[in-house]
Design a protein around this nucleic acid. Structure first.
Lengths: 130, 130
DNA sequence: TTCCTAATAAGCCAAATAGCTAATTAATGC
DNA sequence: GCATTAATTAGCTATTTGGCTTATTAGGAA
C-alpha cells in the first residue's frame, strides 16, 4: 500500500516531460532496440535498457538523463541493475499496479457515495450533470 | 481520451503536497463541513465547497489557495461554479476515471506482453523475480 | 450609493528544478 | 599498468514554482 509521501514522489516524477517519456518507453518497450547492443552472454530482461541508450533518445546530456532515471528509481517507478559497467533499467510494474488500484478505488468509492447520497447511478449520458 | 499533455498537467498538479491534499479532501468529502455555511436557498452538490473554506484548512493565504485551485481546475481535476460571490469547487470524477483506465490498461498490456514473450503469468509470489 | 466579503490578478522574492560542464568512480580491454 | 567506456557526483546557472502582500473586480447587504 503506497503512502501519501510515495504517491507524491510518483506524481512529481511523472510531472516532468522527459521523465514521463522515459517512463512511457520503458513500460511499453520503446527502448527494446537496445537489445542489439546488449553484452554477449549477459542475461537481461529484453525490455530492459541501459542509461546511455535512453540518453540517445533525447537531446540532453548523459548526466541529465542519469539524474532523471535516479528520480524515477527513487519514486519506485523503475528498478536498476548493474551488469558489468552498464546500468540496466526495468519497469517496476508493481508500483503502477498500485497506482491503478488507488485510482480505481477512488472512482468506485466515489460512485458508491454518489449512489448512497443521491440515489443516483452514473450513466454514460450524464457525466457532467448529476 | 486524455492526451499526453493533459496527463502531464495532472501529474504536475498532484505532485504538490498542498494541491494533493485539496484533491484528496474534495474527492473524499473532507470539506463537507462547508455545508454549514452554504447560502440559504442555493442548490449545490453537498460535496462541493468554496475557496475560502478550503483555505481555512491550511496555513496559507487565500490568494495562494486560490492559485492552487486554479491549477487543479486547469488540469481538469476539479470544476468550479460561481454562485453569488462564492466559487464552489467540485470533483471532476471523469478525469480520475480516465486516469484509472490509463493505469489499468498499462498494467494489463504489460502483463499480456510478459505472458506473450516469457510464457509467464505473474503470480503474487514472484513479483520481483520473473 | 457605500460598505463588506469572496475571489482573482499583479508584482515581488526565496527556494526548488532542470539543464550544463568538469571531475570522479568503476568496470573492461589492451 | 594504462586507456576507454558508462555512469554518477559536484558545482554552476537560468527558469520555474510557491509563497507572500497589495490592488482590483464582482456580488450582496445596509
Amino acid at each position: 500500500m503506497l503512502t501519501m509521501h510515495q504517491k507524491l514522489k510518483i506524481f512529481k516524477a511523472l510531472g516532468n516531460e522527459t521523465r514521463f517519456l522515459i517512463f512511457k518507453n520503458v513500460f511499453t518497450g520503446g527502448y527494446t532496440c537496445s537489445l542489439d547492443k546488449k553484452q554477449e552472454g549477459v542475461e537481461i530482461n529484453p525490455i530492459a535498457t541501459c542509461v546511455s541508450t535512453v540518453a540517445e533518445h533525447f537531446n540532453f546530456s548523459l548526466p541529465t538523463i542519469s539524474n532523471h532515471i535516479k528520480e524515477l528509481r527513487e519514486a519506485g517507478i523503475i528498478t536498476v541493475e548493474k551488469k558489468g559497467n552498464k546500468v540496466y533499467i526495468e519497469p517496476n510494474i508493481e508500483t503502477i499496479r498500485e497506482m491503478a488500484e488507488c485510482f480505481a478505488t477512488l472512482v468506485s468509492n466515489f460512485d458508491a457515495n454518489r449512489e448512497l447520497f443521491f440515489n443516483h447511478t452514473p450513466k454514460e449520458s450524464d457525466d457532467a450533470n448529476p
